[in-house]
Simulated assay, not measured.
Amino acid sequence: MSESIVKNWQGEQVGETSFDLRVAKEETAAHIVHRALVRQMTNSRQGTASTKTRSEVRGGGRKPWRQKGTGRARAGSTRSPLWRGGGVIFGPKPRDFHLKLNRKERRLALRTALVSRIDDLIVVEEFSEQLSSRPKTKELVAALARWGAVPEQKALLILSAITENVELSARNIENLKLIPADQLNVYDLLHADKIVLTTSAIEKIQEVYSG
């Protein structure tokens, strides 16, 4: 059971909330989170890097000089990897870097990563209605500072549902990332200095990831 205070739009404490998520055992927690992080970063690789071998490089069909009698080293093609403009030895080719991790393990890693950041969690009330009818980046930056997430720190804002007004207000804040509660990932949870959640986002996380 994890407990945290709840702040309002002005940054004042208005209550407390708690959430209960099953996490990995202490002796295996670091391992399962590390596996999930490596999987996410590896699966984000495109794997499209490609080089040409000597058989794929254009040209080099004619033997540059006769085999014997010139005093130079024998050569059969100007596209040898030893030559300028030649092919590449053991260069990268398109490949699939995909790593598999069971769904239960992925969710266990997410819950463990989130609970491990309990000291950096900031829980706030729903604030979409507090923003003016027009998107205001300045108002959201000021609110984050009142909550304890200063502009110099990397902040992760987790909402149960992202409204257009909040999205437009947040998209131009340099160190802020906005994600919905049902699309958590280990990298963002570990990368952020501060994690800001709404009370409804906590309920959504418990609904989606509890198990």
Rank of each mutant, 00 (worst) to 15 (best):
K154A: 13
E125F: 09
Q183K: 14
L140D: 00
L156K: 03
E174G: 10
I202V: 11
L157I: 03
N185A: 02
E129T: 13
I195H: 07
E174R: 12
T137A: 04
D119I: 07
S169R: 08
T198F: 02
E139S: 13
A161I: 12
Y187G: 09
W147R: 06
V150P: 09
L168D: 12
A170D: 03
A145K: 12
T199W: 08
E129K: 14
V123H: 08
Q153T: 10
V141G: 10
G148D: 05
T137P: 03
Q183G: 09
D119R: 13
A161R: 15
P180Q: 05
K136H: 14
L184F: 06
N175R: 14
Q153H: 10
R146N: 08
V166H: 10
S116W: 11
A192H: 01
E129H: 11
L189G: 07
P135I: 05
E126T: 03
S200T: 02
N175Y: 01
D120V: 13
D182A: 13
V186T: 11
V141D: 11
N175E: 11
L156H: 04
A170W: 02
K177R: 14
K136M: 12
S128F: 04
E139K: 05
R117A: 09
L184C: 05
I162Y: 04
D188S: 12
N175V: 05
V124H: 00
T163F: 01
R134S: 15
I202M: 02
E164Y: 10
V166P: 01
L131F: 09
I162N: 04
L159V: 06
I162G: 03
L168V: 06
S133L: 12
I158A: 03
L157P: 07
Q153P: 03
D120Q: 13
L176P: 01
N172E: 08
S160I: 09
A181C: 08
S128P: 07
K154F: 03
T199D: 06
K194L: 02
E129P: 04
S160H: 15
I173G: 04
R171A: 03
D120G: 01
V124S: 01
V186W: 02
L159A: 04
P180A: 09
E139M: 09
W147L: 01
L156A: 02
Q130E: 15
L184E: 05
L176V: 07
L144I: 02
R171I: 10
L121V: 03
Y187I: 06
S133D: 03
V150S: 12
R146G: 05
D120T: 15
S133N: 15
E129F: 00
L178C: 03
D188A: 08
D119H: 12
A143Q: 00
K177E: 14
N172Y: 07
R171D: 05
D120E: 15
L178F: 00
K204V: 11
E203M: 10
T198V: 00
I202H: 01
P180E: 07
V141S: 14
T163R: 13
W147T: 00
I195M: 10
A201H: 07
V141F: 00
N165I: 11
D193I: 07
I179K: 09
D188R: 01
S116Y: 02
L189T: 05
